[in-house]
């Protein structure tokens, strides 16, 4: 009799674990599942950062190209919203999972060492939470600046001769203010640091570790970090130095 009760309880437990609500929750909150969440959402975010950068670099091609590109993005309508929602989901998953892991990892060592010597890890890897949080703060400012037009409404309202949203002038006017440019450059340094560890770490978290590819994986993060840093700061730097002129 007792064993029947135990079996019923066991069967109920197994049924719960097989139910999507049960196993998905169990997976994403486990230490390894959380790594997959970080890696998969991170991959989406790296992809966005690279596409975003390439799109914006068209500022070097003049106002016609950049404003046409911006108009094209706007014209995709519902597709743009699908991308935005996908991006938002990735951002939220990355932040929530990352903060939760940072908290749990602090709990895992309540008493710190008086002396601890790093043997392999580096400062970029150790400051992921800090660099990530500063980047979040920057993204909020960046959205208020260029996407929502809250911080510089006059620049945001500009139109080009074809009657389109004048993204080119908005960007140039924004970056002509040294403090604004400085905040973008500092933020890009932090994004570069974050990606330098993150984009390499991603492979290991996804279970990709192979002697024939490890040296490649180890270079992907630093390469993307440097690329994103240099590519993105080239725009404010070019505006400040006068290589990119107002329309």
């Amino acid at each position: 009799m007792a064993s029947t009760v135990a079996n019923d309880a066991n069967l109920a437990k197994v049924a719960k674990q097989n139910h999507a609500m049960g196993w998905v929750r169990g997976f994403v909150t486990s230490s390894i599942g959380a790594k997959y969440v970080m890696a998969a959402s991170g991959l989406a975010l790296v992809g966005f950062v690279l596409v975003h950068m390439v799109g914006n670099l068209q500022v070097f091609l003049g106002w016609e190209k950049l404003n046409a590109y911006a108009a094209f993005l706007k014209s995709t309508g519902s597709l743009l919203w699908v991308a935005r929602i996908g991006l938002l989901v990735a951002v939220l998953a990355h932040i929530v999972s990352g903060l939760r892991l940072a908290y749990l990892n602090k709990q895992a060592r309540p008493v710190r060492y008086r002396k601890q010597t790093s043997m392999h890890t580096n400062v970029f890897a150790r400051t992921m939470a800090v660099s990530g949080l500063i980047v979040v703060a920057f993204i909020v400012y960046h959205l208020l600046h260029f996407t929502l037009g809250v911080t510089n409404p006059a620049d945001y309202a500009l139109e080009d001769p074809l009657g389109r949203h004048d993204v080119y002038s908005m960007v140039v006017r924004g970056f002509q203010q040294p403090l604004v440019s400085a905040s973008y450059i500092v933020a890009m340094a932090l994004v570069g640091m974050h990606l330098s560890h993150g984009a390499t770490s991603m492979f290991q978290s996804l279970g990709l570790n192979h002697p024939k590819y490890n040296s490649l994986f180890s270079k992907v993060g630093p390469a993307i970090g440097v690329l994103v840093f240099l590519g993105n700061i080239s725009m404010p730097v070019a505006v400040l130095l006068g290589f990119i002129q107002p329309r």
Binding site: S31, A34, K35, M119, S201, Q204
Partner: peptide, 9 residues
């Protein structure tokens, strides 16, 4: 125990 963050220490 904490979660692995690929420090490789």
């Amino acid at each position: 125990f904490g979660a692995c963050r690929n420090h490789y220490e």
